[in-house]
Design a protein around this nucleic acid. Structure first.
Lengths: 229, 229, 229, 229
DNA sequence: CATGAATGAGACTTCATTCAT
DNA sequence: GATGAATGAAGTCTCATTCAT
């Protein structure tokens, strides 16, 4: 049932996705030598598959994308898919993980150190919108509700939750610096903000609204709801 | 190949769902009299199907529910399903419509006239949470993103959007009464609030949090973000 | 399984179709009186059904036409269909019978007494083509091969065979009058001619050929193959 | 949602049917070599499916044969069917193509070069009858009218038409050699002959007539209708 | 490790026929 | 006699996954 070396999804896969390293490539030290790491060939296949998966999950959604489609798009054999992912769901989760890491990385680069409340909020939102422009649809696809994918609990923290907790951490920091009202439940606020961003982003995209205006409007509402008065 | 008489989803179905009227039942004015409306028998079948659909869509989600399951749950033949709904998607949309109407009706009864900002927001949120308790899972299921259901645009206003616009109307009223800051984009704010509610509701349910606290927390954040300062 | 009074398909149905008599309509001689014949209402329903069946079988073919479609087209209830025809096949056979009778009647009126070989052949062919123009598609639909309709032998003489035998009779007469070579197997010749007509008619229709030329060409070939030399 | 690689019906399939070549089987030129053509395994599956399809279409007809039956008869999985044929109709057309090619090949081997009119006609008819004996029912099944299969025009030249055109070519040759009257429309004559053969063949089979007599009778009629007088 | 043909459970939907009204 | 809602067996086709090569 399992592929060899399932390579803990969260570690290898995503790291790779962002950094695209090719350093830890396998080397065989002569015939019968112990295998160390993963062969370059295998990594290459996985990279192609994940890129194809992202493209198709974004374009068509989870249920409209078949493993076969991903393999073909990746230019590898259909069977190869199952060499790299236990099943379709695992592939989708690898995609969302990749997207989450990528967005975090993107934000880390585009958003300066956590500064004053309003500036930070605006900068983060701008980062998210820029990422959305650079990678259209990825956020929306990656935020697909797990309940849609499978009845059984995945027992996996979905990106939405992860991001909500990221915001909670930020809010705690702002509380510490006295900018955010101490009576606020930062975890709840984190979830509300993430929910609002998702819905607001979809609304802006559907209605083709001016990005700057949306960022301003969202910033204003978030800041007012948080800041100490 | 269409089923006969797809019975416009928006008209009959939803109206019925809330009011459960039996007035427009067919009556024969003597032998050969003209038929008026739909026969009681047909209405009854549809009611059973819709109740079954709601139960299963809520329990299992869209993709895990087969038309056959709905028919069996409703206690009617497999084919009867297609007598009432053009296809599975149409049935799901009938369910979401019903839920939306039902919630609106519920709110209309449980929420007094639009009053002071904070009281109203709290009352509405309390209404939503009460509805959630009375009909567990229905809101979450009904808010299923359309993009998950079918690739092609449904061209149908989903409940999320409808509710967002309801909030926008409320906000406009509060603007008029001077309670809400005039510089707020009420449509954007409506969408953000709905997104926040969805995400927050899920969070509260998952973590089994105290409803009163969540309502208080959400009310506080929403009110602060909106009110004139 | 059976409808009341299946009314021998061949007798009533077709006769009616051509002559459209309304004479033998049922009359009830008081309460509990013996029913004589069939009620006018029933006849009327049957007439409408048969007209609808002809229209749809011609337009869509046997397998693409559902009893429901026929009923709706006829403007009667779906169940009424089974009051008049044991099943769908019986309805189709009633249609072919009707068409066969109708064509025979049409030919009898448009084709003079059997005269000289060539003139007769041409006249018959012209009659057939004229009928085709007046009732487009009917011949082709009515000639549908029985084997396509049902696996089990219908044990029913299909129109093709009936017409072939009609030609055989004609050929025998021409033999008697010395116009047709006595060494010809008239039954075989009858079948060949009918097959040729069917195929030739389809060819002419598909390619939109000039009717007169086709009639001339077919007449020439048939006459040459038959006539004493 | 298409099956992968529907493999152009006309090219591979039919060629294969007659010649049963195994030349263009995949070969690997060492590790990672380029694939050429289709794998032997796939070819083998297709061959089995086509043989099963022929058997069942002949025995039961188009509408009484399910893709599932064909797969089972072929000894392959249900899904394999759709790996080789886009749908049921495509499979049927592959069968008729195969039969047409096979008959042509059969005739080419059993019928000498085109010689004197009467001898040639008799030889061709004898070839057809012999083929019918060797492959009972195939001709009749393969000649199934396209209009019975699907309402929409297939835009595909059916065997009947192909054969009619084959006869037209022959007739043109006989015209050139002065054996056939120049005033004959060869294409019309081709269609008439094919129609006559189909109908006559069915008649002979149904009535269990002596093949030689039928061949003689048909030859006589065809020759008389064609030959210069 | 890679391939892609094969698999078969199961999805959605249709439609000839029955039957309560 | 007429109606049309109801029925459920059966049909076509899909797709996540396996496995021989």
């Amino acid at each position: 049932m399992m592929t060899e070396e399932p390579t803990s999804r969260t570690d290898k896969a995503t790291e790779m996705a962002v950094l695209d390293t090719e350093e830890d490539v396998a080397t065989r030290s002569g015939a019968g030598g112990a295998r160390v790491g993963v062969s370059r060939r295998k990594l290459e296949s996985r990279r192609k598959l994940l890129a194809a998966a992202r493209k198709l999950f974004v374009e068509r959604g989870y249920h409209e994308t078949r493993p076969q489609d991903i393999s073909r798009e990746a230019g590898v054999g259909h069977g190869t898919f199952y060499l790299h992912f236990e099943d379709k769901l695992a592939c989708f989760l690898a995609f969302t993980d990749e997207a989450a890491i990528e967005l975090e990385y993107f934000l880390a680069q585009h958003v300066g150190r956590v500064g004053r409340l309003e500036d930070s909020v605006r900068e983060i939102l701008r980062g998210i919108f820029e990422y959305s422009v650079a990678h259209p649809g990825v956020i929306s696809a990656a935020l697909t509700d797990a309940s849609v994918l499978s009845t059984s609990d995945i027992g996996k923290k979905m990106p939405m939750t992860r991001w909500a907790e990221g915001w909670a951490v930020l809010i705690e920091k702002w509380k510490a610096s006295g900018e955010v009202s101490p009576d606020i439940d930062s975890r709840l606020a984190g979830h509300l903000i993430v929910g609002a961003i998702k819905q607001g982003g979809g609304y802006a995209a559907r209605e083709n609204l001016d990005t700057e205006k949306i960022i301003d409007g969202m910033t204003m509402l978030f800041v007012r709801s948080l800041k100490k008065q």
